[in-house]
Amino acid sequence: MSSLADEVTTIAFESLAVDAHASFIVNASASEDTLEHAFTEHLRLSGIYWGVCALATMGNLRKTMDADKREEILSYVASCRCESGAYSGGAGHDGHVLYTLSAVQIYALFDAMDRIDRDSVVNYVKGLQLADGSFQGDEWGEVDTRFTYCALSTLRLLDRLHEVDVEAACAYINKCKNFDGGFGATPGGESHAGQVFTCVGALAIGNRLDYVDGDLLGWWLAERQVKVGGLNGRPEKLPDVCYSWWVLSALSILGKTHWIDRGALARFILRCQDETSGGISDRPDDEPDVYHTFFGIAGLSLMGHPAVVEPIDPVFALPNSVLKQLGIEPWSARKC
């Protein structure tokens, strides 16, 4: 197999408007009076994670966020902490494993892991695992393999993975495997590239990638690339920049990013960027947002775009440098 690094060098990247994107992200977090702001309050922590992580990978987190801003964000994160040990999407909302992971990721990005009450977070996450190995997202019982990923990733970042039944968690994911090699939210659920990332990521964390049929799933993922270079999430759907991450990260974990035309994907992502006002949208000429901006940049990072100076890890969706600080070996160092 040809090495990833060799093939990456063959991609002639167009430029990424790093400064414009950075100011787009910073401005997006500043506008608090809009209706849109009110309606996204419940997932503010995820929004902060996407923004901060995008800035971190572009290497300008320090430049754009001074000590005051960092404190402001971290105290907001702290205000989202619930009694249960979980974090909520926004202050005053209910806790959920989705935002618990976001909170931990933000602390990791700001090198502030010491501010987490590890025991209470771990206890919360532990409490979400059900008898069949699956995880519910909160105490209301919704089960989804996304939550398994959130739980395992959270615990691994806190270095407490052993607190849950990892084998059972991975076995449950295996039950969600489909005829196409992909994974669904629950057994029988349709394969979806986003879900595939969470399942493959969780299996990578749980060290059970042997559950994956790499050839079949890798092929299915490679077929997500459509004529225009972009990736879709399911067969016969439209391409969307966010799948640049979901598909490519899974391919990356499986060591098969060279199964698609990365140059064409990079061109597609870069055509979705607004070079003047910053930000990346789902498809060319649509409105940019922080979500697509992050996943576009993350996708470019996996393909080795030179402007993304802090390469991102396909399993944890955090810069390699952040993982190293936590004592976690980045995926790129683990394989080949």
Partner: peptide, 13 residues
């Protein structure tokens, strides 16, 4: 012309 053939006007194949 299902989704995978999507290309917008400019991508006329």
């Amino acid at each position: 012309a299902p989704g995978s053939e999507w290309g917008g006007d400019e991508f006329q194949t």
